[in-house]
Amino acid sequence: MLIIDCPNCGPRPETEYGYGGQAHVAYPEDPHALTDEEWAQYLFYRDNPKGDYAERWVHSAGCRKWFNAVRDTRTYEISAVYRTGETRSETQKGA
């Protein structure tokens, strides 16, 4: 089981969390301008890297807040956690 370091509550077991998939996928700025192909990309396509992945978790059994983590999808090691609204680079210097 993963131990995930919630930015608000500290390290807790994975069973307290829910997974939210890829982080930093913004809602389209002008939805009316999107082609069907662009909608398909927004709705159905996500990055699926073998390596570092910026992803969302929610601490359902704790503070109930969403936050972001950078996790290696090969080793499952989490190298950074940061609050929603912060960018990955602010937290993860040089990574």
Binding site: M1, L2, E14, T15, N48, K50, T73, R74, T75, Y76
Partner: peptide, 13 residues
């Protein structure tokens, strides 16, 4: 397992 992973292993829970 809920998370993306290429590790050929998952969590025990």
């Amino acid at each position: 397992d809920s998370y993306n992973g290429y590790g050929q292993r998952g969590s025990f829970h």
